[in-house]
């Protein structure tokens, strides 16, 4: 975790330097970032509490039989449906996904959850139907599903072979 913090900090410093040279708007960027952080802190804290509860609530046996590496395809299918139902932004969804990972879910399941959340997340449905119509929404839903299964399946196979 410390390593990740260092990497993110270095990236942040590099971007500030690039912005100061190219646009001169590095302070505006800092203000924007801080403003967004303050706006999302209540959401993140709420998600942390929710994730903590999920972590202690999900029985190990459930994760072992439904979401773990051993659950195989069942975990990937369940992960895709679960990711679709996570109708929240990244600040709320990611801590929940992390708690499922901490409970012992397989890598394939986690990847299918995140991919399904990215592509099929139901929170996007109102925008897609409002701007492009129901036909577009259904088309995108059907078109996206194989990619979520596929991504989870590839990682599951890699996990079985390599780990």
């Amino acid at each position: 975790m410390a390593q990740t913090t260092v990497i993110l900090s270095i990236v942040a410093i590099i971007l500030i330097l690039i912005n100061s040279k190219k646009t001169g708007k590095q302070l505006e960027g800092l203000k924007l970032g801080m403003k967004q952080m303050l706006q999302t802190i209540p959401l993140i804290l709420g998600a942390f509490i929710l994730a903590g509860m999920i972590e202690v609530l999900i029985p190990r046996e459930f994760v072992q039989s439904w979401l773990s590496k051993e659950a195989g395809l069942r975990g990937i299918v369940l992960g895709t449906l679960g990711g679709m139902l996570l109708a929240m932004g990244p600040y709320a969804s990611f801590p929940i996904i992390a708690s499922i990972l901490a409970s012992g879910a397989g890598l394939g399941t986690i990847v299918s959850i995140i991919t399904a959340w990215c592509l099929l997340g139901l929170s996007k449905a109102p925008f897609e139907t409002a701007f492009f119509g129901v036909k577009f929404f259904v088309f995108k839903l059907i078109f996206s599903m194989p990619f979520c299964f596929g991504a989870g399946l590839v990682v599951h196979v890699l996990e079985m072979v390599l780990l």
């Binding site: 975790m1 990740t4 913090t5 993110l8 900090s9 990236v11 942040a12 971007l15 500030i16 690039i18 912005n19 190219k22 646009t23 708007k25 590095q26 505006e28 960027g29 800092l30 203000k31 924007l32 970032g33 801080m34 403003k35 967004q36 952080m37 993140i44």
Partner: peptide
């Protein structure tokens, strides 16, 4: 906490860039 702080700095800088 620290990772989040760095993350939001990155997000703000990308938005301006």
């Amino acid at each position: 906490a620290l990772m989040l702080l760095a993350s939001f700095i990155i997000i703000g800088q990308i938005q301006v860039l």
